[in-house]
């Protein structure tokens, strides 16, 4: 039912869009209608697939690396007092820096290829994942820790068997944010300097007044983002079956 409702909403919006374009007669190079975009999607499919593959690879690599690095740092911070003392201020300050401002530097250092885009995606993913998991690890129900202590558990055992599983829902929220921002990181990286990818294609099409192609690239990117978010969300739900569902998915109406 949810899917049907979403499809109907999308259809209505698309119809409105087409209506505005047809009624006002806006030229195609300013605002193409959805039919023109669909046409571009079909005509330029090979091009879109080629550049889409680049961007998708960057997003996925960035996601995997960013989540792995973020998870590892959160675990390190939670396990070692020294790490917390020395690295926490750094982490907090670095979060205040707009990461996107680093994009030109990354391109300078890592080149026009995929590496700089993956690095960009890793940077935007790293902080939400680290803070989400670290927060989760710090907020363990104190009663569980007491119980584990009377049971003679070592610190490592408590981290592994109690604090980490208890932090997984928080980690899941971080993962959802990561999935949502990963495409942004990759595309910003491509805008700053690249020779392939959907971000590159959008800039290129914009410069040549191929606005229908720009919209087509945007549509592909949108599909990536939604699919990625849905996949991550489904994965989290499957992995944490004990977690009471806070999403009002089964709204009774």
């Amino acid at each position: 039912m949810r899917v049907v409702r979403a499809l109907i909403t999308a259809a209505v919006l698309l119809a409105l869009w087409q209506g505005v374009v047809s009624l006002t007669g806006v030229p195609r190079y300013i605002l193409p209608g959805p039919l023109a975009v669909a046409d571009a999607l079909q005509r330029q499919a090979p091009l879109l697939v080629q550049h889409g593959a680049t961007t998708l690879t960057e997003i996925l690599l960035g996601l995997v690396l960013g989540v792995a690095l973020g998870g590892a740092s959160a675990l390190t911070l939670a396990s070692f007092r020294t790490a917390r003392r020395w690295l926490m201020p750094l982490l907090v300050v670095s979060q205040a820096i707009p990461v996107f401002a680093l994009a030109p530097l990354l391109v300078l250092w890592l080149g026009y290829g995929m590496a700089s885009k993956v690095a960009m995606a890793v940077l935007v993913i790293f902080f939400p994942v680290t803070t989400a998991l670290f927060d989760g690890l710090r907020r363990t129900e104190p009663g569980w820790l007491d119980l584990a202590r009377t049971m003679g558990a070592s610190r490592r055992s408590v981290l592994w068997h109690i604090r980490l599983p208890a932090a997984l829902p928080a980690f899941g929220s971080g993962l959802r944010v990561a999935a949502a921002v990963a495409p942004i990181g990759a595309v910003i990286g491509e805008w700053v300097g690249s020779s392939s990818g959907l971000g590159y294609l959008m800039l290129h099409a914009n410069a040549r007044m191929q606005i229908d192609l720009l919209f087509a690239a945007l549509a592909v990117l949108g599909v990536f983002a939604v699919a990625l978010y849905a996949a991550v969300d489904a994965l989290i739900r499957r992995a944490l079956p004990w977690q009471p569902d806070t999403h009002p998915t089964e709204e009774k109406d």
Binding site: G143, W144, P165, L168, L240
Partner: peptide
């Protein structure tokens, strides 16, 4: 303890 302290997972 007063709470059951069962691990939900």
């Amino acid at each position: 303890a007063q709470q059951d302290l069962l691990l939900p997972w």
